[in-house]
Structures are given as C-alpha cells and as structure tokens.
Design a protein around this nucleic acid. Sequence first.
DNA 1: TTGTACGCGTTATCAT
DNA 2: ATGATAACGCGTACAA
Lengths: 339, 339
Amino acid sequence: MTNNTPVTLKFLAEKLKMSVSTVSKSLNNYPTINAYTKQRVQEMARELHFMPNKSAINLKEKRSRIIGVILPNLLDHFFTRSIYGVEQFATQNGYNVIISQSHDDPKKEIQSANMLLRSRVDGLIVAISKQTQDFSHLDQFEQMGTPVVYYTRNPSFNLNCHKVLGNTFQGCYDATKFLIDRGHSKIAYLGGPKMTNFTHDRFNGYINALKDNEVPFSAKFVAYTDFDKENTIAAIKNLFADPDHMPTALVAFKEPILFDAIKYLKSINHPNFNKIESIGFGNNAFIGYLDSPPIASIEENPESVGENAIKLLLQLINKEIDIENYQKVMVDCKLVVHG
Amino acid sequence: MTNNTPVTLKFLAEKLKMSVSTVSKSLNNYPTINAYTKQRVQEMARELHFMPNKSAINLKEKRSRIIGVILPNLLDHFFTRSIYGVEQFATQNGYNVIISQSHDDPKKEIQSANMLLRSRVDGLIVAISKQTQDFSHLDQFEQMGTPVVYYTRNPSFNLNCHKVLGNTFQGCYDATKFLIDRGHSKIAYLGGPKMTNFTHDRFNGYINALKDNEVPFSAKFVAYTDFDKENTIAAIKNLFADPDHMPTALVAFKEPILFDAIKYLKSINHPNFNKIESIGFGNNAFIGYLDSPPIASIEENPESVGENAIKLLLQLINKEIDIENYQKVMVDCKLVVHG
DNA sequence: TTGTACGCGTTATCAT
DNA sequence: ATGATAACGCGTACAA
C-alpha cells in the first residue's frame, strides 16, 4: 500500500491543527513547548513514520553531514578495511559516508570529486589514484572551505595538505631487521611501481635497517614490479639470477605480489626454496591456508589509518584544528610473525 | 586560499547584473535565452567553479538521484564485487550510491535504513543480515513509494518483494554433477548456518543432482557449519567419522569454509587426502596460491548480480515496471575448473 | 506557550 | 529575451 502524501512537518501540523513551527520545535525538544503538546506531536510523528527530509535540513544548515571518500578500489583489502574505521567513527558522530571508487583512473577521480562537491560533503578523505598528477579537482574543496585529508596515498612533492599515512618506513625497517636477526645477510627487496611514490619509504626502511646493522647493500638485491604477475616473475628471475649471489630472504612491498614470487620460486624447484624467508606488506587473512607462507607479515592496520583520517577530518570540520595548519599523522605498522 | 562567499546562482546573478532565473536558465540551456547571454553566464560559472547545490535540487525535484545499498559486509568479496556492478551502472545513469554495512546486525541494519530514508534515496538495494526477521524498517520504503530490490539474501517466506538472486541451486547442481561425472559416488555436502535460508537452494541442487544421476543419498554425508573455524572442523570430523563410509568428494557452501576443511584434512594426514576432490562457492582469486586447491569453484558472478539489481531498480524508479508487479531475477552460476 | 515570517539554492510559471 | 515570484521542507528569530 503506497502512501502518496509525503509526511512533512506541514502535514503533521495540519493533522494536529497547530503551526509548523510548533511541530518542529516539539520534535526537536524545545524547552519552551508544553510537555503535553510535545507528546502529542511525537506520538503522531512516530505513528506516521515521519522522517525529516535531509535535503531540506542540509539546505538550511549549509552542511550535509556527509563525508566523501575517494579511493582506488574496494577489491583491495587495505581500503576495505580502512573504510571500516572511517564508517564506524563517522556514524558515531552523526555523519554518513559516500564511497567512490576511482579504479585508479584520474578521469573517474575527477568525476567523483565533482559529484561529491555538488553533494556539498562536509569533508573529504582521499587516496589518490596512481596516475593523479594534477590536483585541481581536489583543491576545489579547500577553496570552498571543505577540509580534505589525504590518506595512504598522497602527493609526493611537499604539497601543503593534511595526510594520514602508514609508517611504511618503520614497517619495512622492522621486517628487514627481523630477517637480519634471524641470520640473513642476503636480503632482497621487491619494490612496487617505480613512478609512484608510495614505495620509496619502504625502500628507505630496508636500506636503513641494513645500514644500522652493518649488512652490506647490493643493488643486485633490489628489483621492482607492478601488480602484474609477469613483471613480478621477471623481477624475481633477476634477483635470483646470479648463483654466487643468491638471496636467502625477501621483503616485498605488497603481499599478493609476494605470493606470486613464492609460487614462482616453488614452481621452478629453487634449490634453497625451503630456506628462503619472506615478508610482505598486508597480513592477508588467507595466509593461514598457504603451505609455504611468508614467515611474517607487515600489518598496516588499515582500520587505524581510516580512523585517524576521519578523526582528523572531524577536527578540521569542527574547526578544532585550523584548515591551514597542515597535519601529518603516521600510523605504525606491526610485524606479525606467522605460525 | 579559502573563499567564503558560496558561489550560488544569486551570487553569479549579482556579478553579472542579471536575474537569478536568467542565470539558471542559461546554465540549463533554455532555448529562450540569448546565445550571448548564455555564453557570458557559462563562462562566469566555469571561472568561479559554480557547482549546483544538490540539496536544493533534491528539495525542488523531490528526488535525490541517490541509490542506497545495505549489505552485511564489504570484507566479503562477493559483496565488494557486486558493488562494482551496481556502481558502474548507477553512475552511468546519473545516480550516486551510498553503501551502508550492517555487519550482520539487525539493529545496525535498521539504523542504516532510517538514515537512507532520511536521505530520501530514490531506491534501495539490500542484502539482509543473517538475523533479520522483522522487515518493517525496509517496508517503510515501499510505503513511501521508494522501490526496494532484495539481492542475494532475501526473506525466505514468500514475501512479496523484488529479488535478484544467484542461482545457487543450479550452481550446486552443476558442481555435484561434475563430481559424479568424475566418478565420485560418495559426495559430502557442507552447508551453511541452518537457521538462515540462503543455503537451502544449494542443498536442493546437491540432492537433485544425486537423484538425477541415481547416486544414493546418505544423511551421513551432510553436515552444517557457520563461518566459525571450530564448527567447520567439527562438521568435517563428523563427515569423515565412519571409516566404512568415507566421502571422496566435498561440496561446500562457501569457499573460505572449504579452505578450513581442506586444511584440516591435510593436517590430520587423512589417508586419501590427495584423492578427495572438492568444490565451493566463490572462486576466490587466492585459489591460485594454494597447494591443494579445490578442483573447481562455483563462480557466482557477483558483478552480474549487482548489475541486475540496479537495472531492475532503475526500471522500478522510472515506472517502467509497476512497483507492485514483483519481479524475481535469477543469475546463473558458472563452474570454473582450476588448473 | 504558540504562531508568523523568512531564508537556505534551485527550478518553473507567469509577467513584462 | 528577461525578470519577478512561488514553491520544495525545515529551523529559528521574533512577535503575539
């Protein structure tokens, strides 16, 4: 049974034979309204399933209580998990979340940004696409006074912006140190797409751990790949090319890539396969099902990254932090040893 | 640099010394407006980054161009993939999507529903939580004339509603048939939580495949579990308890559960472990990394399920289908053989 | 204690 | 070809 007259304040007012403002005040618990009146109004509202129209309220209050999130891909567990932190905290504070996927396409990212701009989101949390070079579509938000928090992926050059990042330097440092402590001195590093900047910190963590522990560095132990399996195999072939100079351990920038690497080494019956110890970023839930799992994982705590992003954003929205007082928040990684 | 005066039609009108309505008409390309005027307005609008306020438009047009989605959990790849289909098609048609996770908690589901109701979504796509018994929070939408499409998970009793479902009967039938054709006659079925209704069709598919191929059914070959690992192991222990009556194949209602089962059987060095062939619902991307993978997977085509849901919803929104002309759409599963 | 009147930003109807 | 005005639903300053 479809009810066609929308239940608005006006409608309630007519039913109750009072003015719209009395109804409004009753529902918002104004102290000046008679208790009995309030009760009558509230009962009627419940009975008729009155729901205030958010568009009207937004228009009036000049805010939407919506947080926009732009991220590359929900298929990546890191982002899905980070959303958990965002949503949880946002909901607690009366905000809704609109998630928009860029699929790592700058054009789609611009579309999403404009959509969220029209929706007058109160704040934006964004993990930029791999290809994003121009930031004008995101700068528009701050120009309108809407705070933006970059998370995880952020502009490499020293742009003035709020950022919340995983401490991948520390994560990679700890992983490398862990392997050194287990006696390895030939530790390979498998990095991500070179053009992007998200893996430099990891590499630096690797390098610094070597240096701090007086393990000699060799360029032969460093290779780069993207998310493509063929590239990963090519990179691994390179790392393990020199029989006199064979890595005994491996640190990888992302776990799925590490799994490809392990699978490949196993498939070619690498002589020392069982002795090779590896660690990657991610801590994928499926590791428990692998027969030759990495010895440990670098847990990036995505929920915490998301939570820190939304917390910062809310502080900016509430003007507890000045929008031009740019913040940088680092979330520590945690080495999780398996088995 | 923060600009504080919002760029509205009024603001543009003042700048251009014309009326608000002329500005509005120019931007919406009204035929009655002078070409030169249009041009001036559009240039100014672009220059000042004018973005129409969606709240105002929604209020005026009595619609939001927002589709609400309520689902249990984005960590489940099925749902994440289904969102892909929804989002793609929604965006193409000028709709935004608000996703809300219930985390399988009916209370949270009600909250989400009310939030989306206040946002005056034009339509709702929902996969109900495991525990949802009462549907009044969802019925409200139809009462307001807002169409609702249930997808994947839907009320078991013959409620009048629009549904889009994976054809799990066919999926399970095909899987069982596949195992029979490979010579198995002792095929176990590992089902999901009994109280919920989403696994009955699967069980029926299993049963019917046995019957159609004259393979005797035994209650000893059927066990149920939930998503908890301990329960799964207990169920598997039961299935493989009788040495004279040992399954040689296994069909499971969900892949992660199947992985737990495989891992357990391997861990106890089950004598015929290498001969046991198994199939589960999901087709997880991770399967390629397993040493003892299922022989095949039942691909549920979640993107297609999502796409069918949004297509149906848009037809309902556009009144191409009457809201009371309840539709049921089935999306076929596909058996994917590995290796 | 309750009601009147206005404005939020936009579109559309009706004048001019 | 352009402008004035009302309306969408709500909250609130002010009047009664």
